[in-house]
């Protein structure tokens, strides 16, 4: 069993949730390091010493052209092999908000299965899924309930419902065809759906951005790569809850589930 779990948190121009992401990983017991993408490109081998890789939130390169697009382009051209190896080594990848957009725009998510093998194959052609402008056309900061939608993702306790903040202008998950949407659902790729407090799906504001099938997060065919628009690192202690002053509940925030499970998984499997 692994003693010290090591996580790498990617930095790049415009990434701005790296510090709180490191904090959440540390609370879960990992040792986390922020590394600038330029360093990673100089030495892709550095990924070997980590077991968890996180693409944090922010506005990488200003979200110019489209959210996460420029960073995704950079990753595909310089780090595709390194990330592919990382995933194929059985390690974990988490993309939060802008990081989710990057994982989708690199084609790493949803990572639809091809035959029996893992499908981590970063590339910029023929992507099945994208994340686009909210239906409202505006950036939106609000809290949403999320229902876990799969039992195969190592970050998630199946059947749990959690409450997390979203903060994005481009969070609407869309698929190229209705068939792909069906496949995401049928093959256990839908990690989270937006729901109300009782677990029911619904229109705005329950579904805050117009995502198809209310999708808030996706996992790949291995269940070891997760991307989600909401911010788990922003709810790690109760005083971050938007109306904690009304609640009796003590202890950790809902977002810790993802980080705790990731660290536990690494400890048990490496």
């Amino acid at each position: 069993m692994m003693e010290q779990v090591k996580a790498i948190v990617l930095r790049a121009a415009g990434i701005n949730c790296d510090l709180e992401t490191v904090h959440a990983l540390e609370l879960a017991g990992a040792q986390a390091q922020r590394v600038h993408i330029n360093r990673m490109i100089e030495n892709p081998k550095m990924l070997d010493q980590y077991q968890i890789m996180v693409f944090p939130g922010g506005f990488s390169y200003g979200d110019d052209v489209a959210a996460g697009k420029i960073l995704a382009n950079q990753i595909v051209h310089h780090l595709a092999d390194a990330i592919k190896k990382f995933v194929n080594d059985g390690k974990l990848v988490l993309g939060i908000c802008n990081g989710f957009q990057v994982l989708v725009k690199t084609g790493i998510l949803p990572g639809l299965s091809v035959g029996t093998g893992s499908a981590c194959n970063p590339g910029l052609q023929d992507q099945p899924v994208s994340i686009i402008d909210n239906d409202s056309g505006k950036f939106m900061d609000r809290w949403s309930y999320l229902q876990c939608g799969t039992d195969k993702c190592v970050f998630i306790d199946p059947s749990s419902r959690i409450y997390l903040p979203i903060a994005h202008g481009e969070g609407k998950v869309v698929t190229k065809t209705p068939e792909i949407l069906k496949r995401l659902s049928n093959q256990g790729h839908v990690a989270f759906r937006y729901v109300d407090a009782d677990g029911n799906t619904g229109k705005y504001p329950t579904n805050p951005n117009g995502s198809m099938d209310d999708i808030a997060g996706l996992t790949d065919s291995t269940g070891r790569v997760l991307g989600l628009m909401p911010h788990p690192e922003r709810f790690v202690r109760m005083t971050q809850h938007p109306h904690w002053t009304r609640l009796e509940r003590k202890g950790a925030g809902d977002g810790m589930m993802l980080f705790d499970n990731a660290v536990k998984y690494v400890k048990e499997n490496f």
């Binding site: 939130g57 950036f139 903040p165 903060a167 790690v236 971050q240």
Partner: peptide, 20 residues
Amino acid sequence: IRQYDHEVQGSSVIKPLAGV
């Protein structure tokens, strides 16, 4: 208010909007 990110840095304890 909702167009501004008031959660980033994970530091807001009392946010601009309150209540149930």
